[in-house]
Structures are given as C-alpha cells and as structure tokens.
C-alpha cells in the first residue's frame, strides 16, 4: 500500500514537472499523460473505482487525445514554440512566491487533524452502483445542469472553431 502510493506520487510529480519544463509541446503533453494516469492509480488506491475509470477514459482518452489532435492539426513545429529566454528564472521566482500560499493551505488542512485511520466504509464504497444512487437521489439538479453545460460547450466549440465565410 505505502510503496504503491510512493511510486504513484513520484510518477505524478515527475510528469507534472516535465509538463512545465519541456519546451517541445508534444513532450509536455506526454508528461501530462503520466500525471493523469498516476492520479488515476491514486484514485484506485482511495477506493474510488468508478472515478479511476472515468479519469482514464475522460482525461487520458478524451482530453489529452483532443489536445494532441489540435497540436498536430495546427502543425506546431519546434520552431513555432515561443522563445522563453528567462523561463527558469521565472519558474524559480514564482515557486518562491507560491510558498506562503502552500504553507497556508498546509496549515489549514493540518488543523483538520486527520488522526488515525479513515472511517470504515462498506465494500461497495465508490463503485458505480453507490455513486449512481447518490447522483440520482441527491444530486439530480447539478447533474442536469452539467448536461446543459456540455451542450452549450458543444455548440460553442462548433461556432468558435469554424471558418468564417468571407461574404
């Protein structure tokens, strides 16, 4: 259990740093895939079996595939990538600037004092039956709102990305 967590956490951190470090866009996207899959493994470790599946299908399957498709559709070469002469200096400065915020977050969560083990849950915690029950009993209105949002996003994407006709 512990060794799996360590391996997955290191993979997630490695993928995240490589995402923001690489200058080649496709390499960054592949680093992001590593992070997403490691996070899916962490969800499985936390008994969220349905979210594990959704993470792999939606993120690694749909979002990153769409991202790579757009990168290749626009035919982004290495020469198109913007020149970033002081990239590492900016990273260092922003990483130092973010430390107080991190400290605040850590203190806030630390004061919740997660002492001891988690609550004992039933065997089917996090599987699709329990999640569906909860979703369609107590969360039906947000669920419908999300479906409306997806429809709006679909129409918006079609309208935004089509070629303008020169009339």
């Amino acid at each position: 259990m512990d060794i799996i967590f360590l391996v997955l956490a290191l993979l997630a951190l490695f993928g995240a740093t490589s995402t923001i470090m690489f200058s080649n866009t496709v390499h960054s996207a592949l680093g992001f895939v590593v992070t997403v899959l490691a996070l899916a493994g962490l969800y499985a470790l936390l008994n969220a079996t349905f979210l594990f599946m959704v993470q792999i299908i939606v993120y690694a399957g749909a979002i990153i595939a769409l991202l790579l498709f757009v990168i290749m559709f626009l035919n982004i070469q290495q020469s198109h990538a913007p020149k970033e002469p002081n990239k590492y200096l900016l990273m260092l400065v922003s990483a130092i600037a973010i430390v107080p915020f991190d400290y605040l977050l850590f203190k806030a969560f630390y004061s919740m004092s997660f002492a001891g083990d988690a609550n004992i849950t039933t065997k089917d915690f996090g599987n699709i039956k329990m999640l569906g029950n909860e979703l369609f009993k107590n969360w039906i209105l947000p669920f419908e709102a999300i479906s409306l949002l997806l429809l709006v996003a679909l129409i918006g994407a079609v309208v935004l990305a089509r070629k303008k006709e020169r009339a």
């Binding site: 959704v54 979002i63 991202l67 626009l74 999300i146 949002l149 997806l150 996003a153 918006g156 935004l160």
Partner: peptide, 15 residues
C-alpha cells in the same frame, strides 16, 4: 471532470 471536459473543448477551439 465534466466541467474540465467542457472547458477543454471551448479552450481548444479558441486556440
């Protein structure tokens, strides 16, 4: 995750 998927579509079409 659903909002992230919707955001991905709009963001990439804007790009």
């Amino acid at each position: 995750m659903a909002i992230a998927a919707a955001e991905a579509v709009v963001f990439l079409s804007l790009i």
